[in-house]
Amino acid sequence: MHFTTEDLFNVTFASEPLPLVELAMALVACQRLDEQAVFGRWRGRAARELSGAGVRPLLELLRPDGDNPQFVEPYARTLEEGLAAVREAGSRLSPEELVRVAARAPGSASWLRALWRQDREAWDQLDGALRAAHEVLVAPYWSRIRQSFQADVAWRTRLLAAHGIKAALASTHPAAGWAGTAFEVDREPAYEVHLAGRGLLLMPSPFWTGRPLVAEGPAGPAGAYLLLYPALTPLPLVAPGPAEGALDALLGRTRAAVLQLLVQQRTTSELARDLDISLPSVSEHTRTLRAAGLITTRRDGKAVLHSATGLGVDLLHSGG
């Protein structure tokens, strides 16, 4: 992603999570296989609750890599506004996009072709699937989705103020970095985006677990691009009800405990023992903390040693 000087001054955060964007990410998360230590139990529960809910059409549109047709994830503040925007976008669907979506769909493309032909029954089916999936995956957890979103924005805003835009963006993924004024993520598929003065809107999602995704922004051709990235605290780690402290709200209780322990250097095994959690779970937590610049990890023979960075210690102090 190539930044102009103007773009570097025009990086902002979204003001709130958006229901249909989060729904799309939740449906994608259901199909992914990564981060099983965090999402595995949630995926099993979501699959059971979605069974028989009539959401199969959505799984033909929304695939695990997150490269989805944008019309089903509009930038609308409410569910009803979003559903209206999906219907409105139907008249602008192109044959080229049908070919791309149908090539990725598992099974027959007949429903997709009916959707593109503006068949009323197909669009009613899509509307019902969106409502049903929202009722299962988003509505019951909206306060936790907002908590994860707000905590991530608060953290990265502080990171931006203390260390600049390069550190804030590099912390969105372990494979992210910079080459001059180009922001790079070393993951397939490879493509380039030239912001060309349009700026960038940052949106964390507690459901998304992959590389940052780039999309056209909510204001149309003249608006900023949008960068959707994994929130520091994924939904399964956000405790129901109010958090006990600012650090728990940002990181989740277990991840905050990991960071607190790493004021003194510890191995992966020691963290698992002290917190009574599994080794894979420790690895998931340390990977995310490391990506955010809060801890460092080094290997000493067979042992893997972790310790908090200055930034991590500073966060502990500010969080009480």
Rank of each mutant, 00 (worst) to 15 (best):
E16Q: 14
P174M: 04
L58H: 11
G217A: 03
V153P: 09
L137P: 12
P140T: 09
P140Q: 07
E97I: 08
R144A: 15
A114I: 10
Q125G: 12
G128C: 05
A175R: 14
P212I: 01
V214E: 06
D276H: 10
P206H: 01
P240M: 07
L126T: 02
V99M: 07
D186G: 13
D67M: 05
Y225F: 15
G40L: 03
E244M: 06
L112S: 09
S91D: 06
I295A: 00
P240Y: 06
P230D: 05
L200R: 09
R287F: 02
L213I: 08
T309C: 00
L137G: 13
S171T: 15
E49R: 15
R266P: 08
F71V: 14
Q147Y: 09
V313E: 10
G54E: 00
V55L: 02
W155Y: 11
L262A: 07
L202P: 12
L58F: 12
S171L: 11
V214F: 14
D34H: 11
I277N: 07
G319V: 04
D7S: 04
L226I: 03
P140N: 11
A291I: 03
S15H: 11
R87Y: 09
M1E: 06
V28G: 07
L294Y: 04
A53Q: 07
E135T: 10
A249M: 10
A243S: 15
A24M: 01
V282H: 03
L316A: 05
G197H: 01
D274A: 08
A105G: 09
G128R: 11
V282Q: 00
A139L: 05
R113V: 10
Q265G: 10
A256W: 11
G199L: 04
H163S: 15
P280N: 13
D248Y: 03
W123M: 06
D119H: 13
D152K: 07
V282P: 04
L83C: 12
G241H: 09
L227V: 00
T172E: 01
G252F: 00
L201C: 05
A291P: 11
S51A: 15
E244F: 04
F183L: 09
F71E: 12
S283T: 11
G210W: 10
Y75R: 00
P57N: 00
P69L: 01
A24I: 03
A109W: 03
S143I: 00
A196C: 12
L237Q: 03
